[in-house]
Every structure is written in C-alpha cells, then in structure tokens.
C-alpha cells in the first residue's frame, strides 16, 4: 500500500473533473480520527495477530506492522488514531475475547 499522505487534489472546473464520483487521489487527507468518541485499544498479550480487524476496518486506521519472531515474518495490528473513527467494527469482528477493548474518549 502507498504511504499515507495529506496530498489532496481539488478540481476547479468541469473540464478538470473526473467523469465519475471519484477522488483524484487517496482520501488520506480526511482525518477521520476527529469523529471518534470511543477508542479501541489492542491488548497484545491476547492478540493472536490474525489480522481480522485490519481486514474489516473501513478506514486506513489499522496498520499491519511487520516484525520477525523465531526467524518468521509476522504481522501485528497497530491502530492509527489519526484515522480511527471509533466505529467498533474491529472489536465486533475480533475472534479473541478481550483482545480489543474500548476506552471512553476524553480528557
């Protein structure tokens, strides 16, 4: 996947507009983290690294972080709170009880 970037292409006139309702680049400039009122937190003691949460997350809010263990390539989910909108899909879909728990947002 390309790096997240704040690049945003805005069209001016009809002639610069793509014919369909499509962004001219990624939507990464749209920091959906500002919508969040519930914060998912991953408990890495319980997390098995199955990456179900990463697959289901509707925003670029769970990054798959590569690491090595016993000479094997593995991944772990890391939540990017700039984008996490607190929709709760990850903790509904996570197959491991308690691997993702939620904390209230706020001070």
């Amino acid at each position: 996947m390309p790096e997240k970037t704040e690049k945003q292409i805005v069209f001016d006139k009809v002639k610069d507009t793509p014919p369909l309702a499509v962004s001219l680049y990624t939507m990464d400039y749209n920091k959906t983290g500002s919508w969040r009122n519930v914060r998912p937190v991953i408990d890495y003691e319980k997390c098995t690294g199955c990456m179900t949460c990463w697959k289901f997350c509707p925003e670029p809010a769970i990054d798959a972080e590569k690491y090595e263990e016993d000479g094997k390539e593995k991944y772990k989910p890391v939540i990017d709170y700039e984008y996490c909108k607190g929709c709760g899909i990850c903790w509904v879909e996570c197959p491991v009880e308690g691997a993702i728990y939620t904390e209230e947002e706020g001070e």
Partner: peptide, 13 residues
Amino acid sequence: YRIDPANPHAFGG
C-alpha cells in the same frame, strides 16, 4: 478510472 489497489482512489466519497 477503475478500482485498482496499485492506484488508489476513493469511489463515491
């Protein structure tokens, strides 16, 4: 324009 992971666009955003 088409859905293509190598060339990401948001559709209908």
